[in-house]
């Protein structure tokens, strides 16, 4: 099971700094079993009680044919799929912006994989940015969603 807390300072010395982040190199990731609990915990946290995420009968009668995850399930998946030493976890990492394209819904029981890398690094207005490039796949290798984000690096 996944821990419900994580000490972001514990592995901080092992995380790459902006200077050390290698553009274009894939980050180490691990498959994640997308459970109903992950889906529903996330939906509740954003106050989204859409029956497509909670009501099996309703969802089975929808065009999705069963329960699905909210589009933004990529948020917990990103953290569950990456190592505690991943530079994304560096304390003080500020999210500057994100864009995501949603190809198909995540579903409970999916085993999801992530391919992720730094696509670009930018020094601008006295800030150090990294551009993140992420693609999530289901177990059949089909794309679930793709996303790009900009973070401000603290060091």
């Amino acid at each position: 099971m996944y821990s419900m807390t994580e000490d972001y300072w514990a592995d901080d010395e092992r995380r790459a700094t902006w200077e050390e982040i290698e553009v274009g190199v894939e980050r180490t990731t691990r498959p994640v079993a997308l459970t109903l609990q992950i889906i529903q915990d996330y939906a509740r946290a954003i106050g989204d009680l859409n029956p497509l995420y909670f009501d099996e009968d309703h969802a089975s009668r929808s065009r999705f044919g069963g329960l699905i995850a909210p589009p933004t399930i990529h948020v917990p998946l990103l953290f569950l799929a990456t190592e505690t030493t991943d530079w994304m976890r560096t304390p003080g990492t500020i999210n500057a912006g994100q864009n995501w394209y949603y190809r198909r819904p995540g579903r409970p029981g999916d085993v999801v994989t992530l391919r992720a890398r730094a696509l670009d690094k930018v020094y601008r207005n006295e800030r150090l940015f990294v551009v993140h490039d992420n693609v999530f796949f289901d177990a059949a290798g089909r794309v679930l969603c793709t996303g790009r984000g900009w973070t401000v690096r603290p060091r």
Binding site: Y2, M4, T5, E6, D7, Y8, W9, D41, Y42, R44, A45, I46, V75, P76, F79, L80, R89, P91, G92, T93, I94
Partner: peptide, 13 residues
Amino acid sequence: RAYAAASHDFNPL
């Protein structure tokens, strides 16, 4: 805090 737990993003921010 609830969002941190559900998103698994525990950044001290």
